[in-house]
């Protein structure tokens, strides 16, 4: 594995290796001194073309705890037409000695271009591209589910048989796409629930079931985990696409309110990639309930990103050494 571009690229073995490594990393994070040495002397560039403080900080924390130096480059808006091109930005940063590029970009496929266009010769980690993929989010979600499912004995396990319901704006969601791919690879049984306007044409071939009815899905699928996707309020205006009539209608039909929370199996967890719209896709009651793993997901995110950086940078290094 040279890059991490899409959750769909991961084999079951690779995904489990990342999750197992993340478990090791997580255990080190309860120590008093959290910093580990493996990426000492290496430089990780966070190349963020979209505002995302939490994801950037998570990657930054992960890199620093592995002793890498971190350069943060933020260029709000796209590189398109105004100012420097993505190619020039990437080549500039690579020339400054980047050992890995973590990229968040509003254009689907931008990380893929960075990895394959021949512009730079550096491992690329996708930190979210447009409506395409957000593989470390899927990994941290899988990590969270795996811990809840297997407790202390997670090493080597997958998510075979886990029942997961993902609810919301699937059309625009890289989180949904990444999760569908990774959860299928790990053997989970996934249902996507959304108003028909927010399911992409073409999703019918995805390795999951599709539903328009949240109540029926909760009743019939009895999920082990329910993941609420962020819905942008502007999607209801006609300028934003007019995908649904009003926030209240969305909330009534697809929000995780108290009644739906009570309808979940007792052991079911409530997940959200954040940032949450309380009162829209998730009620405060659900967000703050004991079932909610929202905060846990954030801390797991650091461990998973440590694992990815470690495997892409130090992992390659040690296997090259072994080969010699």
């Amino acid at each position: 594995m040279r890059h991490l571009l899409s959750a769909a690229d991961l084999t079951r073995a690779e995904a489990i290796e990342i999750l197992d490594t993340a478990e090791t990393m997580a255990q080190t994070q309860s120590r008093e001194i959290k910093k580990l040495p493996p990426l000492r002397g290496m430089t990780v560039v966070n190349l963020f073309f979209e505002d995302s403080t939490r994801t950037r900080i998570s990657f930054e924390a992960a890199a620093k705890r592995l002793s890498a130096d971190v350069i943060n480059f933020s260029a709000k808006g796209s590189s398109v037409s105004k100012g420097e091109s993505l190619k020039d930005t990437a080549q500039t940063l690579a020339a400054m000695g980047a050992d890995a590029v973590v990229i968040r970009h509003p254009a689907s496929g931008a990380p893929h271009r960075l990895a394959t266009a021949g512009w730079i010769d550096t491992p690329v980690i996708n930190a979210g591209d447009g409506m395409h993929q957000h593989p470390t989010q899927a990994l941290l979600d899988a990590f969270t589910m795996r811990r809840r499912r297997h407790g202390a004995a997670t090493t080597g396990t997958d998510l075979a048989g886990a029942r997961v319901v993902i609810v919301g704006d699937v059309l625009h969601s890289r989180v949904a796409r990444s999760n569908v791919d990774l959860l299928a690879t790990l053997g989970a049984d996934v249902v996507l629930v959304a108003p028909p306007t927010l399911l992409p044409v073409g999703a019918e071939v995805w390795p999951c079931a599709l539903s328009y009815d949240l109540d029926a899905t909760i009743a019939e699928h009895t999920p082990d985990a329910i993941m609420m996707l962020r819905v942008q309020r502007e999607r209801m205006s006609s300028a934003g696409g007019g995908f649904f009539p009003s926030p209240m209608e969305y909330s009534r039909r697809y929000g995780l309110d108290g009644a739906r929370l009570r309808a979940l199996p007792d052991h079911a967890i409530v997940m959200h990639p954040g940032p949450m719209n309380r009162g829209l896709e998730i009620s405060a009651q659900a967000a703050d309930s004991a079932r909610s793993t929202v905060v846990e997901q954030v801390s797991n995110g650091v461990a998973v990103r440590m694992a990815v950086l470690y495997l892409l940078l130090a992992g390659g290094r040690s296997s090259e050494r072994n080969a010699q």
């Binding site: 689907s108 496929g109 591209d129 447009g130 796409r177 992409p200 044409v201 073409g202 071939v205 995805w206």
Partner: peptide, 15 residues
């Protein structure tokens, strides 16, 4: 083109 490939790639479709 809007279809299976655009859905997967997350590129806005041209139906």
């Amino acid at each position: 083109h809007e279809g299976v490939v655009s859905a997967e790639l997350g590129l806005t479709g041209w139906p």
